[in-house]
Design a protein around this nucleic acid. Structure first.
Length: 431
RNA sequence: GCUGAGGUAGCCUAGUCCGGCAAGGCGCCAGCCUUGAAAGCUGGUGGCGGUUCCGCCACGGGAGUUCAAAUCUCCCCCUCAGCGCCA
């Protein structure tokens, strides 16, 4: 959320930044927010004046009564205040709520280094690693590989839960766990605190961590309850210190969240419709950081380096893109995506998203920083990045590591987590 | 789910019955004292608006009664405890 202080003191900076998004609606919203702020302050002055008079009269009435009788003209004036004040306060509240509602709809201010572009085709490649394998007609889609291994039930899952869901069975389940443990161990070694968060959040903290459109498009709501299934552990981790003051001597705070993720949105259908690339539910290990504002740019690079290392140690070629203005979304000030090379699709596809959200989430969540016993007004920054999303990572492993005999080689770094197992082989027929 | 107790400044608490400028402690900051520190003593210590200074607000949120609400009435939210249910 945009700082009201900046809205007043440096509106040009905000306009210039919003302008880069190429969506004139934002400039209109911002202009309205400024007008409402102006109107709120005017209404505020008026209401303050009336309240002052009311308090003044109240004190004198109490005094006069203690001395005997209350003069009639004093009472008459006192009686005239409430109506006028009610109106003034109604205006004040209305303008303030309108301003805040507008501010909640505005996106975060973007970092200077975000490249201009209309959509994901214009994201800027900032790094590549490994050699992308050339076309190989023998390669099968990851979903087919899984079925051939006898380790997935897609049709039955669709009947039980609908499309976008899946059963995994047998050793692939252990591979899923191995990926989570591998990522978690790497982060713990680097000083991240593992966190198992709640998988459902109330709406109020949820509005702090994401933009409001997500409630319709992405989030599953529990019927009859004020609860939403989390779309990523980023959300409960951000909400962890909701309404609190963080001790700045203990920043940065590095967290490693572990949770399933639930998402309604399912995108376009492609060749790999049957599979686990784009699904309603998946496991993810997430990096999350609370830090001082001046540290966030550096920590963004740290999160990216951790995420890159995980993909690299899995032996999967990838590239990193700096997500452009048209593709950035409302919460992040800057975002890197890591795109793994899917050899069958002959395409780089997103497996990691690494964002610096600056003060957008923290301000909406009412989080501040301060030293012990001395609350401050400074709002900390938050960052988040995938460490590993197992569904997509397993998908790329299944594409890249599949063998002509139908088995799938296990990436070396995962073998210790699988009791030394070096490949996944077809399991016997099931019922 | 039921019953009860709670929500007051960064933290802890008084005030609520009986309406009239929110008291105190801790922490924090400054000064005094000290070789230095601690202790002790003194003062300060929230948000917002207009801004030499003043004012308003702030007692979980909202509505109502009243000249006046932390205090009375109603609605809602959250936390804790006990009980119930339960992997």
């Amino acid at each position: 959320m945009i700082d009201v202080d900046v809205l007043r003191k440096d509106p040009g900076r905000i306009e210039q930044n919003l302008g880069r998004r190429g969506n004139p609606a934002y400039l209109t919203l911002f202009a309205e927010a400024r007008a409402k702020d102006e109107a709120w302050r005017a209404a505020r002055v008026e209401a303050d004046r009336l309240r002052q008079r009311r308090n003044d009269l109240g004190r004198r009435i109490a005094l006069e009564r203690a001395r005997g009788a209350v003069p009639a003209e004093l009472e008459a004036e006192a009686r005239s205040i409430p109506t006028a004040l009610r109106e003034a306060e109604a205006r004040e509240g209305e303008q303030r709520r309108a301003r805040d509602a507008l501010l909640m709809r505005l996106p975060n201010l973007m970092d200077e280094s975000v490249p201009a572009g209309k959509d994901d085709s214009e994201n800027a490649v900032v790094a590549t690693w490994g050699t992308p394998a050339g076309p190989n007609p023998a390669l099968r889609a990851h979903g087919e590989v899984l079925e051939a291994l006898g380790m997935a039930e897609f049709d039955r899952a669709h009947r039980a839960s609908g499309s976008g869901f899946y059963y995994l069975t047998g050793p692939i389940v252990l591979l899923d766990l191995a990926l989570q443990r591998f990522a978690l161990d790497l982060l713990v070694e680097r000083g991240y605190l593992p966190v198992a968060p709640p998988y459902l959040l109330r709406r109020e903290p949820y509005e702090g961590v994401t933009d409001l459109a997500d409630f319709e498009n992405v989030m599953y709501k529990v019927e009859g309850e004020d609860l939403y299934l989390i779309a990523t552990s980023e959300h409960p981790l951000a909400a962890l210190y909701h309404g609190e003051i963080l001790d700045e001597d203990r920043l940065p705070l590095r967290l490693a969240g572990l949770s399933p993720c639930f998402r309604k949105e399912i995108g376009g259908h492609g060749v790999d419709q049957k599979g686990i690339f784009r699904v309603h539910q998946f496991q993810k290990v997430e990096q999350f950081v609370f830090c001082r504002p001046e540290e966030s740019a550096g920590l963004h690079e740290e999160l990216r380096a951790n995420a890159e290392e995980i993909v690299r140690r899995l032996g999967v070629p990838y590239r990193v893109v700096n997500v452009c203005t048209g593709d950035l979304g409302t919460v992040a000030a800057k975002k890197y995506d890591i795109e793994a090379w899917f050899p069958r699709q002959q395409a780089y596809r997103e497996v990691v998203s690494c964002s610096n959200c600056t003060d957008y989430q923290a301000r909406r969540l009412g989080i501040r920083m301060g030293k012990a016993g001395r609350p401050g007004k400074v709002v900390p920054h938050t960052l988040n990045s995938t460490a590993v999303a197992t569904s997509r990572t397993m998908a790329v492993i299944l594409e890249q590591y599949q063998q002509p005999d139908g088995s799938v080689t296990v990436p070396e770094v995962l073998r210790p987590y699988l009791g030394g197992r070096d490949s996944l082989r077809p399991v016997g027929p099931k019922a």
